[in-house]
Design a binder for these strands. Structure first.
Lengths: 195, 195
DNA sequence: ACCTGAACACCGTTCAAGT
DNA sequence: ACCTGAACACCGTTCAAGT
């Protein structure tokens, strides 16, 4: 009767296992930073000096690995959006959040695609972290729309898609930081209400 | 002393070889339509009823296969941009071209990334076809900028990146056609000159 | 409770051998 | 001129066997 479809990371109960756990996480972080979200799991196990089975015991899927690496980042970002919503002008706040999201998500190449899938799949590992971000963003967006600074026909889903699309563009190694900021600016301007 | 780095498709000189050539192309087209640009080459050879070596003889790289499948599409599109440039209002023309590009490129999933790489790599197989599109687009963009309808700080490279980014978003299976047209509209509005 | 590593079914790519 | 298929070096995933 268990509903869970996607296996989650395991909580180690022995100190040697915990050492392995942390070691895997460290090596995996480095590998994914270097080769992107589809880095070789075999290679990670090799570099960590453990057997393939051990890797799978701790992280039963690639997504479980990404989950642990991203969860903290995401919830920190959700909190940031909440802060931005209470303290700043909602239109500018949205812009700042977009920039911060991009900076955070592009430390690993190729995660944007996972994050988009995650939000649609309610029993995905990162779903709750992603939903938190979504909800905060939704509230901020609503404010900015009522406030009249952002066009009314746009949804959170659109924004999420777009922002991850921007992350993908950056992942392609496209141009200078200056060009990137222009891309972001075009998007943000597109979001503004016209006339 | 040969400068060519990327191997091109081979021109068959015997009728049996030509039959294989066309057969491969047909099957590959179907496979890539179904599974995306990273469809299994082994599978394609299998479905085409030929050995792996034969596939490689005709198309020495995955890119060579994509080249043949996309070249005609791209040059047709370049011609379309040229037409749009001579006959229409340049601002609206750009919008129409973006929509047409998207419709054309999303018949195969995951090619956007290849096309972005292609434009940067001058000895890539699709480079000339891509450059043609780039040049036509550049002329159209310049017109629209002088005309005052498109912001001046945007380059063709930015537009190319953005449009392929949109293609990527669509590849993610994101939402309805209605949502997609909103994404495109946001982008096009962002491109417009403000005030 | 945890780890190992061989086993399985897949890849892409190359190449000696055939017609 | 063209084709074949085995060989090689890689994957991800699973699982019997060990401690």
């Amino acid at each position: 009767m268990a509903k869970r479809a996607h296996p989650a990371p395991i909580r180690p109960r022995r100190s040697d296992a915990e050492q392995n756990h942390n070691r895997i996480l460290r090596i995996a972080g480095e590998a994914i930073e270097q080769f992107g979200a589809d880095a070789s799991l075999r290679d990670i196990a090799r570099k960590a000096g453990i057997g393939m089975g051990t890797l799978y015991r701790h992280f039963p899927s690639r997504e479980a690995l990404l989950e642990t690496l991203l969860r903290e980042r995401l919830s920190k970002f959700a909190e940031e959006v909440r802060q931005a919503r209470t303290f700043e002008n909602s239109g500018e706040a949205l812009g700042r959040c977009v920039r911060d999201y991009l900076r955070g998500v592009t430390v690993y190449k190729g995660v944007a695609s996972s994050l988009i899938k995650t939000l649609k799949d309610s029993n995905s590992a990162l779903h709750s972290s992603c939903s938190a971000v979504r909800e905060e963003l939704e509230a901020l967006l609503k404010m900015a729309q009522e406030n009249g600074s952002i066009r009314a026909d746009v949804t959170v889903a659109d924004i999420f898609t777009f922002v991850n699309g921007l992350a993908w563009m950056f992942d392609q190694g496209t141009g200078s930081l200056e060009r990137r900021s222009v891309l972001v600016q075009v998007f943000l301007d597109g979001l503004r209400k016209r006339e």
